[in-house]
Design a protein around this nucleic acid. Structure first.
Lengths: 352, 352
DNA sequence: TTGTACGCGTTATCAA
DNA sequence: TTGATAACGCGTACAA
């Protein structure tokens, strides 16, 4: 009885074995489809499995030497943002197709929370992680902090650690969108972005200023607003900007939340479609129904699911890498963006 | 050496023990903050932990008797839909606050895939699951199929199994929204929904027809379109509907994808804001920037994150339930909806 | 064809 | 105050 205990609880291999009058080893063989089991025995075992509702314990399985858990950590900053949800979906699809699973964590841009999540995932022995890093200190993601668990960074690179990274062309997208505004005749262009020192937002700011410089324009510091990362803050900032004495005639918004805030501000100010030759919005990220707002809108778009897929592929490649061969250096991949102009008529699209 | 092996690999407790010249047991005690360890010994152990970068193996830990994994499965049908992303966020927040983690799976409304996911999660010994069920056969979610792993259903109930469930008021929301259309003078109202026999879509259809009946109206079968669950299919169906001989003057759309499709169809048909006394759209789910489309739009809204939070709470309550006491029967919770009318002016909101 | 022994990393129990 | 032992569920190596 000492070995068949655990009555009423989740059935184990020994319980199946006891029921089928064989050893646990034989049960294991049957479940693995190993040859060399008498058909009659096999039947008995399978019957016992069925009767007890036995199901293999993957936890115990992964405890054995060299065995992996088949779990990959995914750490994002804000699932409520469609960008990260799409990213998660893309990653999940690739990972599930390889029989592995995702443990999900949401940091809310809180570095301390990210640190705890990453540490916890490491304790759970994930085979690897995909991380959208929140802060600027990424030391907790370094290979020797993480016992060499592979990490792929997404959307934002690390300054201090050398890791696989999947980015989008933040600079190019912002540059091209801003250039389109300039081409349309705007010279007083404001910038709406986050206050935090998030890398990709700064890249977009760089693209913005580069396009201005290219046209011999200088950004007006009074037309640059860095606010908190939510729609309400963005709306307030945009409203301030548009009601100053000598307001900008166009705004470049550093991400979807800012773009939505800016659109809301214009709406609240009662700016009508007719006035839109005068005030134009451009922004990073796609917006649902952007083509139906009835006002000119220039957006930087890209394939968010593809980012997740590529990150997952990069991670899997590292996991499946032949251990005999030397470890390849960290890769960096930059996915392209497109700039799309929505307007009164048909929309037009540009490579960034 | 037989016990301290695994060199170069992830450090284990024995390796720490060897380095600190103590037994593994003492290391365990130190890590648990157990009293009765000499301060000096404690120091040695902590130093060894630091030097080796030791981190407890939660996998091994959860293998021990009665120990839980701290993992909860979350199975949704479509993460790309903001509704499910919000739901996941709400659930994650509550679960993470309790020190547990989420394993994520996306079914794409494929029952077979759902079955595999649920089975896999059970093999990984999750402590419980939150599931948005895809099909109409839910036998694979029954307690005895799942070795009594608790399951909370979300958004859609099970017919054949008795489980904890969190729903929204699909019937009431659809009823009230349709009633608003009728009150606004519409009598020829079409329905745009999914073709599948998804429970909540049918509830919404029931609410739709109930409101019609209440007003002595009958739904016109030719004005009811069940399409595939994507925007493109919805757009096509809406276009068909609006260009028939005697078209409906209003449409009720069963979810966000259908509403977006309908709006696109109207846009494509060149329906102008001025015509909107004639054609009005209502729909279930919120739409970003709905208030800025410049056309009347009646939407059924609700707190998607709250659904995830409540489901997580319900699951945790069952997990923490005192095992001595009798198991409480499955609960069902229905969260309220609101109907919001967006229009040319300010929006108005109604309880459903 | 089937079974025994042992180890994976951690911890509860009991002994020293 | 510390350590030896066994056990969790499974799989490998080897023996019968």
């Amino acid at each position: 009885m000492a070995t068949a205990g655990n009555a009423g609880s989740v059935p184990t291999m020994r319980m199946v074995a006891a029921r089928a009058n064989v050893s646990a080893m034989t049960v294991s063989r049957v479940l693995h489809g190993d040859p060399g089991v008498r058909p009659e025995t096999r039947e008995r075992v399978l019957a016992a499995v069925e009767e007890l509702g036995y199901r293999r314990n993957e936890i115990a399985r992964s405890l054995r030497v060299g065995h992996t858990t088949g779990l990959l950590g995914l750490v994002v900053t804000n699932l409520a943002n469609p960008f990260y949800a799409q990213l998660a979906l893309g990653a999940e699809a690739v990972i599930a197709a390889h029989g592995m699973r995702i443990i999900l964590g949401n940091t809310g841009e809180d570095v301390e929370h990210e640190r705890r999540l990453v540490d916890d995932f490491a304790s759970r022995r994930v085979d690897g992680m995909i991380v959208v890093p929140a802060g600027s200190d990424h030391s907790h993601l370094s290979p020797d902090e993480l016992a060499d668990i592979p990490v792929v960074l997404v959307a934002r690179p690390a300054r201090d650690v050398s890791l696989d990274t999947v980015l989008i062309d933040d600079f190019g997208g912002a540059y091209t969108a801003t250039a389109r505004l300039i081409e349309a005749g705007h010279s007083r262009i404001g910038f709406l972005g986050l206050s935090s020192s998030v890398w990709n937002i700064n890249e977009r700011f760089r693209g913005f200023t580069a396009a201005l410089k290219e046209a011999d324009l200088k950004p007006n510091p009074r037309h640059i607003r860095r606010n908190r990362p939510d729609v309400a803050a963005a709306e307030k900032a945009a409203r301030d900007l548009l009601t100053t004495r000598n307001p900008p005639t166009a705004l470049f918004c550093a991400n979807n939340l800012n773009t939505i805030g800016a659109l809301r501000a214009m709406n609240a100010l009662g700016v009508k479609a007719a006035d839109h030759a005068a005030i134009t919005i451009a922004g990073f990220d796609e917006i649902e129904l952007a083509d139906m707002l009835g006002l000119p809108l220039t957006l930087v778009s890209y394939d968010a699911q593809a980012i997740g897929r590529e990150a997952a592929r990069m991670l899997l490649a590292r996991l499946n890498h032949d251990k005999e061969k030397p470890v390849p250096p960290p890769q960096q991949m930059v996915l392209p963006t497109r700039v799309i102009e929505f307007g009164s008529g048909a929309s037009r699209s540009y490579r960034a």
